[in-house]
């Protein structure tokens, strides 16, 4: 090998090392503040082209997935960890809630994740005070945003197949070209029930702990699918687009439940009841009411 060859090989090795490290740092960049985290996964950029979808999402419970669940998360941190388990608050523990309620926190530093956990406690415990409201205002920046589903969680059901998400890539059902907006990749996973079931079911944390926020997916798989049902979560819960109507939406609840009533008045035979009546020899005004309550959904009711 001459000097020129040695130089070429060395340069190639250095370039590989440099760009490899750069990619790694982009994928593993850890935010130190909530604003930094929000900037890394900025939903407002999506709004520029997807205004209607963004507006639907803004009205959904996904857009307030943290602040709408403060009580439960507070109880986990302040009672579960602090008292019942006698376990310190760490990012791994916080992620037992936030991996679903704010998936971007995966990219927060250990310190920021713990700070967010403490803010959850403050926001709930000091609700209505200046400090509590300030914490809630900060936490409102965290949610299940566009990139939570279209990037971070998109391929998580088949992580072995898809690997970690590419930073900045938008994964969607069609992979339609977004021109200069962003890179797009088709990923059918996002159209499947198993995609939603990552969070809307029994959750298994990294350390094996099971969290039963709801068990929709259990009845979906074990009862609905087992009886031949074939609709996906998205078939019903995306009928109103990215508003993801559920138990809070009376239209979808009404659609999912059936009630049929038969009221049959009749005269009961005198002298045949143990009940004390005003006149024992008179016909007894009576009625039979038959009620048929139907669950037309793909999961048990109530749940969620």
């Amino acid at each position: 090998m001459n000097v020129k060859q040695v130089f070429s090989v060395t340069l190639a090795l250095l370039l590989t090392l440099f760009f490899g490290a750069a990619n790694l740092s982009a994928a593993e960049k850890q935010a130190e503040t909530i604003d930094e985290l929000v900037a890394m996964f900025d939903n407002s950029k999506c709004m520029e082209c997807h205004e209607e979808t963004h507006s639907e999402w803004k009205g959904s419970w996904h857009s307030r997935a943290v602040i709408s669940s403060l009580k439960g998360m507070h109880n986990f941190i302040a009672i579960g960890l602090a008292k019942e388990w006698d376990t310190p608050l760490t990012k791994a523990q916080v992620m037992k809630c936030l991996d679903c309620h704010a998936p971007t926190v995966k990219y927060a530093s250990e310190k920021l994740a713990v700070d967010i956990g403490n803010m959850i406690v403050t926001a709930h415990k000091m609700k209505g005070t200046k400090k509590g409201d300030a914490a809630k205002k900060e936490l409102a920046k965290l949610n299940v945003g566009c990139l939570s589903c279209h990037n971070i969680k998109a391929g998580a059901v088949a992580r072995g197949l898809h690997g970690e998400p590419t930073p900045g890539m938008i994964y969607g059902p069609t992979g339609a070209d977004a021109e200069d907006g962003h890179e797009t990749e088709e990923l059918v996973d996002i159209t499947r029930a198993s995609f939603c079931m990552q969070c809307h079911g029994k959750y298994k944390a990294a350390d094996g702990e099971t969290i039963q926020c709801n068990t929709l997916s259990g009845s979906y798989q074990n009862t609905y699918i087992a009886q031949g049902g074939s609709q996906t979560c998205q078939d019903c819960h995306m009928k109103k687009g990215h508003t993801f109507p559920g138990g809070h939406d009376l239209d979808i609840v009404t659609e999912g439940l059936g009630l049929q009533v038969e009221i049959i008045p009749y005269g009961h035979l005198p002298g045949t009841l143990k009940k004390k009546l005003k006149e024992e020899k008179k016909w007894i005004p009576s009625a039979v009411v038959n009620v048929f309550v139907e669950n037309k959904t793909g999961h048990r009711v109530p749940d969620g």
């Binding site: 009845s219 009862t223 009886q227 049902g229 309550v293 669950n295 109530p302």
Partner: peptide, 8 residues
């Protein structure tokens, strides 16, 4: 709960 596809 009321199970899916069940009429009670």
């Amino acid at each position: 709960t009321l199970q899916p596809m069940e009429t009670r």
